[in-house]
Design a protein around this nucleic acid. Structure first.
Lengths: 103, 103
DNA sequence: AATACGATTAACATTCATGTTAATAGTATG
DNA sequence: CATACTATTAACATGAATGTTAATCGTATT
């Protein structure tokens, strides 16, 4: 899991919006394009970036390619980054403390 | 706390590196510029972005301006984004309600 | 096989981000 | 007060990202 690549993927607002949509249900490229104002090719490239970062998975179903979110990867990356930032000082001071149970 | 602004700030690799440095200790602009290969003005603008996002705080000490990381803001934003992604489906799918400590 | 539909890639233009050097502002010190 | 040091802003150039339309590929349907 490449945290830098994942955060680079999360850099873009449209991609975070795509993730928000995919957090509810699996969607195809045109589904997402319809939910945005944008074109299918634009969505397709965003999905490609997300996929290479490991954040989404693609599965073809007939003509459509359905994308779904890899929650574990996303949450894992957030947790890792959080621990990198939270780590050095706090672990020295308070070994057992985690900021929040979710991450 | 503006999650979009925070993620936009986290988009940049140099800024995440700055955050990594500041997670260890407070540093001045030139301190950070020395740790990078980059110039002071470049660092200064990155720090400005981070500060407007609320991720770092500045405090002048004599000639120097010391920057330190606002861990709570950063970790809070990560937790909020995580809960947004983690939330909808899991709360709907899980028969037992997940306690919402959502921040 | 021919056509239609969905997805991706190519090519292009435009906008945004990053870094550099030069100039300006603020603070301390001789 | 003049000088030195730190930080920030201005102006500029360059590279990357995003979106558009047109073209290509894959799959299904008739």
């Amino acid at each position: 899991m490449n945290v830098n690549r994942i955060f680079a993927a999360l850099a873009s607002l449209p991609r975070r919006q795509i993730i928000a949509f995919l957090s509810q249900t699996a969607l195809s490229t045109t589904d997402l394009a319809a939910r945005f104002g944008t074109s299918a090719p634009a969505v397709s490239r965003h999905l490609s970036v997300l996929q290479h970062a490991g954040l989404v998975s693609a599965g073809r179903q007939g003509q459509r390619v359905m994308y779904r979110l890899n929650r574990d990867v996303l949450l894992g990356a957030l947790a890792q980054f959080a621990s990198e930032v939270d780590g050095p000082l706090r672990r020295a001071a308070q070994p057992a403390r985690t900021p929040r149970e979710a991450i």
